[in-house]
Simulated assay, not measured.
Amino acid sequence: MKWFEIGLVVLTFATGIIWLLDRLFFARRRAATAGLLDEEPAVVDYSRAFFPVLAAVLVLRSFIAEPYKIPSSSMMPNLLIGDFILVNKFSYGLRLPVNNHKVVALGEPARGDVVVFKPPHDPDQNWIKRVVGLPGDQIAFRGDTLYINGEAMRYTPIGEYVGQGRGAEMNGATLLTEHLPGRDHSVLEWIDRAAPSGQGEWTVPEGHYFVMGDNRDNSEDSRFWTQTHFLPEENLRGKAFLIWLNCEGWFCTGSFDPSRIGTSIK
């Protein structure tokens, strides 16, 4: 993904510069010598044709919405392997492509937001988790219960999880509603294991967030990051808001679930 972004930026600027230089200098010279404005080199012709398309794609992906594909089960039951999602790129401020530097501050993550980010221990990748801890929060995870500032979150049992397609790998897990302050969402957990993992207590520093997967027993999240348990604000890529496709394989030759198209991410 990083190399695609770099390539898109390079191609956009290269085609734009070639087209602009030709318009300012070389087109008039050709007109003076040949009397024709449309006899231009192939590289100029291609640059003039592709620059508007590349520029539009760059602006769309960098500042409006960017597509991602869910590769793992860490956000089940809400996001499944094979889901294609859209990420709002301006929810948390406008950022430059490639280096992700914020140039315009527009907002900050709220508790319960599903965010795409670059993990601090592997910044070349893009991960997706849910924000459960805000700057200054005291976060604890004991047993199967999340505590925020000393208060245990409430859980409403829904039943045994039954999934289809790639979602079937978590069949038999317990499906619950976790009641975060101001935000309810579904989580999965196994109740028959001997020792829950990811236990501990943490204080979220300023400018950082604590993130967890909804599949609580199958998620490499802030609980397990060894260098730092927290997500720096500058690593945010955007807020996930929509599932626009679910399929596997090239051209969706594998599993395909049309029922997930247009599903909002909550």
Rank of each mutant, 00 (worst) to 15 (best):
W202E: 03
S259R: 13
H101E: 14
I261F: 06
G182C: 10
K266Q: 12
L21E: 14
S255G: 15
A65V: 10
P109M: 07
L146R: 02
V115F: 01
V10P: 08
P97E: 09
N78K: 00
L245N: 14
V53W: 05
I243V: 15
P52H: 04
P157W: 02
T226K: 11
V211A: 05
Q138I: 14
L245P: 09
L80I: 09
R130T: 02
P205Q: 04
V104K: 15
T203G: 00
N149S: 11
T174L: 10
A194M: 11
K129G: 02
L58S: 10
P67C: 09
V10R: 07
S73I: 05
G133Q: 01
L188W: 01
F84D: 07
P71G: 06
Y147Q: 04
V98T: 07
A194N: 10
L21T: 13
Y161D: 01
D122V: 02
N99K: 10
G107V: 08
P109F: 06
P109G: 03
C247V: 14
A14I: 15
L245V: 13
G172C: 08
P67A: 10
V204K: 03
N171V: 07
G150D: 08
Q125A: 13
N99L: 12
S74K: 05
M170F: 15
R142W: 13
V115N: 03
I18P: 02
N171C: 04
I148H: 01
R111N: 04
D214H: 02
L80H: 03
W250L: 13
V187G: 02
S74H: 02
P157Q: 06
M212L: 11
T203H: 04
R111G: 05
D184Q: 03
